[in-house]
Computed example of a mutant assay.
Amino acid sequence: MNAAELHQDAIVIDGLIIAKWNRELFEDMKKGGLTAANCTVSVWEGFQNTINNIVEANQLMEANSDLVRPVHSVRDISRAKEEGKTGIILGFQNAHAYEDQIGYVEIFKKLGVGIVQMCYNTQNLVGTGCYERDGGLSGFGREIVAEMNRVGVMCDLSHVGSKTSEEVILESKKPVCYSHCLPSGLKEHPRNKSDEELKFIADHGGFVGVTMFAPFLKKGIESTVDDYVEAIEYTVNIAGIDQVGIGTDFTQGHDQQFFEYLTHDKGYARRLTNFGKIINPEGIRTVGEFPNLTAALLKRGFSEQDVRKIMGENWVRILGEVWGE
C-alpha cells in the first residue's frame, strides 16, 4: 500500500488543535484525512465563558454536520471514519473552567469534554504550569484527578510543571498524557520534556503526543516535516512505539492578538513567553497537508503497522482505556 492509500485507510488523530473554528478549517480537516481531533474550547476562560465557547462550538458543528461530528466515545471515532467526517473531541488546556467545583468535571464530560490539561503555563487551584516555580499537585487537585478518573476524562500534562506532572502521573489510576510536547533532548525549552519525563510517563502507562510547534523544534521556523518526524522517532525510541502519537498544536487561522492572549498569564497579566515568528514546518503548514506526514514516516523507515499506530491507533486505544467505551 502506498503512502496516499495508507493515509486514506488509516485512523488519523490529532491530539491537539487550537485553530480558529470555522468551515474553512473543517474543509481542511477533510482534505487532510483527519479522523478525529482534540479541539481546545478553554484556556484562560472560567466556567461561564467556557460554556459559551461550547455553545458556539456545538452550533458550528451542527451547521457543518456534513463535515464533522461530535465525539463522546471511541465508537464515535469509528463512526467518523465510516462517515468520512472528522470527529471533534472537546478539550480544555486548563482546569480553570472547573473553578472550585468538583461536580463540574462530570457536567463538562457530558457536554463532550474528554481531555483536560491540568494547568496552562501557570498556577491554578489544581497545580502549577511550566512557567513558574512548581508547587506540585494540590490537595484539591488530587480530588479533581480522582473525579476525572471516575467520569472518564483524560489528564493532559503538556503545559504542566514537572513536579505537578509527576504527581498527577502517580495519582491517576488511568493513563495520562502529554497531548502535545517535544523532547528537550533535541531542544532545551520550558515546554519540552526531558528523556526522563518521557520515559516516566510511558513506564506508568501514559501517552505522548508529539507536537510540531516550530519554536520548540530543533531548527525552529526553518523546520520541515522531516524534522518533525525526527522528533517523533526520538520520542518513540524512549517511550516505545505503542505510547506515541500526534498532537500538532495547529493554530491555523489565528492572528497575533490570539497569541498575545495565550502568552500572558490569565490572558492579560504578565508576559510568560514570546514565541516570535510562528511558521509550521514546511510540508505540514496546514491541516490539509496531513498526508505528507504519513509519507514522511514511511520514508523514515517506519513500518506500515507502526505508521498506523503513530497516526491514530495508539490514541484510540489509550482514549478507550480512559473513557471506558
Rank of each mutant, 00 (worst) to 15 (best):
G276H: 03
V41W: 06
S223F: 03
M148W: 03
D242H: 00
G276S: 08
D100K: 14
V176L: 07
P291N: 06
Y104A: 14
I246G: 04
S162Q: 15
A269W: 14
L25N: 02
G32H: 02
D66V: 08
Y178K: 00
S194I: 05
G129S: 07
I169E: 06
E166K: 12
Y178T: 13
G141I: 11
L170R: 15
P215A: 11
A231V: 06
S165K: 02
P175A: 06
G112D: 07
R23M: 05
E143C: 13
M118N: 12
R69Y: 14
G206L: 09
L182P: 12
D100A: 07
I169G: 01
G185T: 12
E196C: 04
M148G: 03
L6I: 05
A19L: 10
D14I: 08
S138D: 10
L170N: 09
V287S: 09
E230F: 01
D9W: 09
L319W: 06
V126Y: 01
V160Y: 02
F275D: 14
E143G: 11
N292D: 12
I318S: 14
K219R: 11
I232Q: 03
L170C: 07
Q8K: 15
W44K: 07
D134I: 00
Q257N: 06
E83C: 09
Y228H: 09
G301I: 13
R133Q: 15
G129H: 01
E325T: 09
D14V: 00
V236K: 02
I17S: 14
W21Q: 14
D255M: 08
V153I: 04
V126L: 01
N149V: 09
L60M: 10
L170S: 04
P70N: 02
L34M: 11
Y234M: 07
D9S: 04
V210G: 01
F47A: 04
A95Q: 03
A97N: 08
I169N: 09
I279V: 10
E233V: 11
D28L: 01
E304W: 04
H254M: 15
G136Q: 14
G283L: 02
R23E: 04
W323E: 07
G205S: 05
A19W: 01
H204W: 10
L157W: 04
K199C: 13
E304L: 04
E106T: 04
L262F: 02
G247I: 01
I246E: 11
L293R: 06
L34Q: 07
I18V: 15
A3V: 13
N52G: 13
L67P: 00
T294C: 10
I284Q: 06
K299Y: 04
V322G: 00
R23G: 01
L182T: 15
V71Y: 01
T86P: 00
Y261F: 10
I102Y: 08
G127Q: 07
V71T: 09
E325R: 12
G283Y: 02
A63C: 09
E167C: 03
E230N: 13
E166V: 11
G185I: 08
N49L: 14
H264C: 05
G33I: 14
E82Q: 15
A36V: 07
H189D: 15
A97L: 05
G87Q: 09
V105M: 05
D76T: 06
N38H: 12
I201T: 04
C181Q: 06
A295N: 05
I88A: 01
P190H: 13
A10C: 13
V208N: 06
I221L: 12
H264I: 12
D156H: 04
T235W: 02
T211S: 03
